[in-house]
Design a binder for these strands. Structure first.
Lengths: 174, 174
DNA sequence: GTCTATACCCGGATAGAC
DNA sequence: GTCTATCCGGGTATAGAC
């Protein structure tokens, strides 16, 4: 269970860069996360970033890892029941919408990910579903759908989303 | 119930352009849908497109309208039960992944949409849910989540997604 | 309705000096 | 590890002739 966290895996300078990248992303969205803007924020010039990361994708990978770790931890802390776990998922995603998007809107670069992180991130859900992978996947799809449709402005402004969440949580508990 | 379809609303030339835009999008994805590439495909130069549409967003709007109409029709044709309707939703989305993405990954430009199209598109689902909006929203979130997580390569390659769909459909029927 | 020419802005990334 | 200078490519969009 050695779970080398982001903190151990990166040099201090790289961690600083990732931290600022995260802040930039969370504050202004994916479109604002450019190598130039990030460099500005760090008080350096864009080309200097390439001494630390080979390309932008490598930087984004660190953000994805970070987000997977945090989601796993948030779910772990709420794994007493499916409704509690869904509440934690919803709250994490809505608290970090741009990071959540970066994480979920592209296919996982599985080969580049630290060993076992994908499993760790979803283990609490699977456990709460009694090991039933079909229920776990369906529940995940529901939760992700609720979050992302809301973030994408797809529900009417008047919609009572908490009621829909409750309906979904109940549906998967039977 | 006058439902001016795309076919009546646009001049023939505009329809040709929209048709080619759709083909380009469906064949090569959103990133490939550029004004230059679209013009190439039509055998004209990019600036000429601006004689027909004020900007790219206006063109994309037509694609979104088109997709909403088609989804509504697909659901209408399968509205005998929730599982049947979900099957239709899944099949439409997977048959037109890039169009489906264009439609769902941004907030709906509701003011620019033809009157009532959003309602028409979702009416079959609401009807099948017996008018219960919470169930309809939860079921939609589930279906969208399943589709988009699959398109984003989020499920393991070995996952039995049909089983997860069935689990979800059952959950919302009780 | 189409063309040519072009402006404009933005992005990621590299070379080579210090 | 940072800099300056620069390349290269891509996109949307406009002006004005035909």
């Amino acid at each position: 269970m050695s779970e080398r966290s982001t903190t151990d895996r990166l040099t201090p300078r790289k961690r600083e860069i990732v931290t600022e990248a995260r802040a930039l992303l969370e504050e202004h969205g994916a479109a604002a996360l450019t190598m130039r803007a990030l460099a500005d924020r760090l008080g350096i010039k864009a080309p200097s970033l390439y001494k630390h990361f080979p390309d932008k994708a490598a930087l984004e990978l660190e953000l994805i890892i970070l987000s997977l770790e945090e989601i796993g931890a948030a779910l772990e802390a709420a794994a007493e029941s499916l409704p509690a776990l869904m509440k934690a998922y919803r709250e994490y995603a809505l608290a970090h919408p741009h990071l959540y998007r970066l994480n979920t809107e592209r296919s996982l670069p599985r080969e580049a990910l630290p060993e076992g992180i994908e499993e760790r991130s979803s283990a609490p859900l699977l456990r709460v579903c009694g090991g039933d992978v079909d229920t776990a996947r369906a529940a995940w799809a529901f939760a992700h759908g609720m979050v992302i449709l809301q973030l994408n402005g797809r529900f009417p402004g008047t919609a009572d989303l908490s009621a829909a969440w409750e309906t979904g949580a109940d549906a998967f508990e039977g």
